[in-house]
Write a protein that binds this DNA or RNA. Sequence first.
DNA 1: CAATAAGATACAATAATAGTATCATTAAAG
DNA 2: CTTTAATGATACTATTATTGTATCTTATTG
Lengths: 131, 131
Amino acid sequence: MKLINRDTDYAVRALVYMARSPQQVCSAKALVDELRMPRAFSRRLLQVLSREGILKSSKGKGGGFRFRKLPAKIKLKDLVEIFQRDFKETRCIFKKKICPDIRTCPLRHKIQGIEKKVVDELAAVSIADLS
Amino acid sequence: MKLINRDTDYAVRALVYMARSPQQVCSAKALVDELRMPRAFSRRLLQVLSREGILKSSKGKGGGFRFRKLPAKIKLKDLVEIFQRDFKETRCIFKKKICPDIRTCPLRHKIQGIEKKVVDELAAVSIADLS
DNA sequence: CAATAAGATACAATAATAGTATCATTAAAG
DNA sequence: CTTTAATGATACTATTATTGTATCTTATTG
Ligand code: FES
Ligand code: FES
């Protein structure tokens, strides 16, 4: 059961690493060196986190990324929402609906319950919890 | 959140169709015609279901597939187990473990709880329920 | 103005998924 | 006993999704 994709995975790793010294500026290069993260990739990743308000960036010499939100306030749910837009599957789990009536489908409300639970659990874990 | 793969998907469609007249013999060809299922594919699918004890097959002219188990006894869980062997993810959801200690990881037992719930729900829905 | 770091976006490689083809075997019908 | 209609087994190809890379532009500092 795949809950996490590449981007979320890397993002969490990066943020957990950064959370060890939350005040410090971290450049994309630092992630390449410290974590074994693909070079051109850490760039994009931090850019997205910055755009989405998780980090703030400063350009130029000595620049880099820093937390905008506190690590304890950054939930896995937030990251999944950023990097896995289509995470919540509102449609039927089958490609072509199978049951006679989608409103009375015995599967549908169960699946929705599960999805809600997953989201709740992801909302209950923060970057700080993993550090 | 992808729970179902191609094979499970087709299998459920096929079985729900067959369950409308459970006594009748159904050939691979019938599925191609009735449901819009890829030709060479319905073959393999029914073969697997037969091998796994869901259906029984008879070769030769007038042959085909019939239920070995009652539709009400065939649970989605069974099909997922047949076609998605690696469905239950026992490892960490991240490629490289992030937390300091896997035993105390706040994520791990939550995820396991979710997976159990998913399986329970899949075990509670049968082919007959969808017919 | 030179050096450093982010912003933006397009590209290529790889892996997973989906679908196809083929040959062998079995059983019934005529 | 030959033809026909079906499954058994397995290998192959195409398509799509994921993953990772390259490059050019813009901003900041000293
Ligand atoms: S089978 Fe998907 S909504 Fe009923
Ligand atoms: S982060 Fe995966 S087990 Fe802790």
